[in-house]
Simulated assay, not measured.
Amino acid sequence: MAISLAFLSLAILTASSGCLSSDVVADRHALSVTRTDAAGIEIWHAVFDGGGDEYGTVIVPVSDGGLIVGGSVKQSPGSDGHALLLKIAEDGRIEWNRSFPARYGVEAVAAHADGSFTAGTGDGSLFRVAGDGTPLWSSRVSGSVPGVSGLPDGGIVAAGSKHERDIWVAVANDTGSLLREETYPDLGRGRALGVASASGGGCIVAGTTDSHPLWVMRLDGEGNVIWSRTFEEGPEFIGVMLHRIYSVREKPDGSVELLYKVGRALKGEEAGGSITVDLTLARDGSDMSVTEFYMPCPVVRASGGGYACAALESSEGNGYTMGNHLGSPIHVMKCDDRGEIVRVSAGTEAEVEIVTDILQTPDGGFAVLGGSTKT
């Protein structure tokens, strides 16, 4: 069955981490997590309302079957913002929440083998909490930290921007002490948006610059560049912008997988669309495969192949979108390896106004991060 997907304009897509434009953040919101089975049928729906304006940006799995949510909270429109971490149990109970002074919220979270978590924020902070939410350490490190990945020894590799200009990558130990940090001005003005640890003590970093919508580089254990690639869009496109890197990882054979979202418009179009790109590079950085498809965000690779997406009903009534102002059941879409939709769930009992992240759980189900305006 063919399904029309509602395009979001490039103006709406300019916010990072799946956020909508400012016309929805003037209200007060509560964030929510909806757990479904493999068919997209709701198992439970948890809402966090701390009395302020709460917004979720990223959700990651925990080894005990629970979930960690990163986001932001503001107690009033004129108050300072705080970064937010929220732990949800496997059965949907909210176990704890912690907030930390920050101008912008959590953009990335790494879970560690000892049960602790490290988060990076949009204003350049790193902090770690124990499994019960107890703060362990915090550090101000850069201009923004939208990428964090755990290392085998309990440390982390973090990536973002320095002085809002240079691409920045750093390694810290499990107590928060910086062991190494480097900037890469040769790439131009930009920032990293995703990072993953790699074999040999190195890492894979991806992001965007003023000159290139996407770049990817492999670093060795000392922070030296092994290879670097930039990727361009065709001359028929305008307004090209990398909005989000859903995932970056090194596969066992050393190749690199990236799943990301880019916004672009054809020349002459008033509104563009969001394109999901699945890119695989060989160990040496050479091209292996690329798949592009139109899909409302957010998207995750599905176990057994293909993709899954969490979407809402378009308020215009002509398809699906990541956000609306009326509220909608969450529909989990399953796609094949080409990005073609093969199944759309009937929709959850709970309704939300925005979906910002999705992950697949070990049982084949899904957890969807969203939010709604408070009444």
Rank of each mutant, 00 (worst) to 15 (best):
P329C: 06
T230P: 04
P235I: 09
R189A: 13
K261V: 11
V248R: 08
T183M: 06
I204G: 00
L84D: 03
F231D: 07
R338W: 10
S79Q: 10
D166M: 09
G339V: 07
G305Q: 02
P146S: 09
E107A: 13
G304Y: 07
S211D: 15
A111M: 11
D220T: 04
A206P: 01
G234W: 07
G323I: 10
E95A: 13
G272E: 05
E233N: 09
A265L: 12
G200N: 07
E95W: 00
T175D: 14
E95V: 12
D123P: 03
S144W: 08
G194I: 06
G285V: 05
G339K: 08
P213E: 05
G194V: 09
D49C: 04
T34Y: 03
G147K: 02
G122F: 03
G272R: 03
Y320M: 06
S255R: 11
H112L: 15
R93N: 11
G18Y: 08
T183P: 07
S149Y: 08
G40L: 04
M1W: 09
I94K: 00
L326V: 15
L126H: 08
S372Q: 09
D363A: 10
L266I: 03
I94Y: 05
F237T: 00
V24E: 12
K74Q: 13
L178Q: 13
I226L: 15
